[in-house]
Deep mutational scan, measured.
Amino acid sequence: LAALHAEGPLAGLPVTRSDARVLIFNEWEERKKSEPWLRLDMSDKAIFRRYPHLR
Rank of each mutant, 00 (worst) to 15 (best):
H5I: 10
A46M: 09
R49K: 14
L10C: 10
A2E: 06
E30G: 09
R31D: 03
V22H: 09
G12W: 04
V15Y: 06
E7W: 11
R50H: 06
A20M: 01
D44G: 08
A3C: 15
V22R: 12
A20V: 01
R31Y: 04
L38Y: 12
H53V: 01
L10T: 04
P52R: 03
R50P: 01
L40Y: 05
E35H: 09
L13F: 07
M42R: 05
S34Y: 14
E30F: 12
E27M: 08
A3W: 13
E29W: 15
P14N: 01
L10S: 06
L10Y: 13
L23E: 02
F25K: 09
A20H: 00
L23H: 03
E30K: 13
T16Q: 07
K33F: 10
E7A: 13
A6W: 11
L23R: 03
Y51F: 15
T16C: 09
R55E: 09
D41S: 05
A3K: 15
T16W: 03
K32L: 10
A20N: 01
R49L: 15
E30I: 13
E7T: 13
E27N: 05
V22P: 01
H5A: 04
G8E: 06
R55Y: 12
R50A: 09
E30A: 13
S43V: 02
W37Q: 11
I47Y: 01
G12P: 03
F48G: 08
L40N: 02
E35A: 07
L54M: 04
R21W: 07
L38C: 08
E7S: 14
L23W: 03
E35W: 08
H53E: 00
R39Q: 14
A2Q: 07
L38M: 07
E35Y: 11
F48P: 00
Y51P: 00
D41I: 06
E35K: 09
E27A: 07
W28F: 10
E30P: 02
E29S: 15
L38E: 07
L40M: 05
F48D: 12
I47K: 00
W28E: 02
E30M: 13
A6Q: 14
R39K: 14
Y51T: 00
L13D: 02
I47G: 00
A3I: 14
W37S: 11
D44C: 10
L4F: 08
S43L: 03
D41P: 01
L40I: 07
A46K: 06
S34N: 13
P9E: 11
A3S: 13
G8W: 06
R31S: 06
R21K: 12
R31C: 07
S43C: 06
L23N: 02
D19A: 08
V15G: 03
R17K: 15
E7Y: 12
R49D: 14
S34M: 13
P52L: 02
L40T: 02
P9M: 08
W28T: 01
K33M: 10
Y51E: 00
I47N: 00
Y51V: 00
I47V: 13
R39V: 15
A6L: 14
R49W: 11
W37I: 04
K32S: 13
P14F: 03
P9T: 08
V15E: 04
H5D: 04
P9F: 09
V22E: 06
P52W: 02
E30H: 11
H5M: 06
A3Q: 15
R55W: 11
K32T: 09
R21A: 09
R55I: 13
L54T: 01
W28N: 01
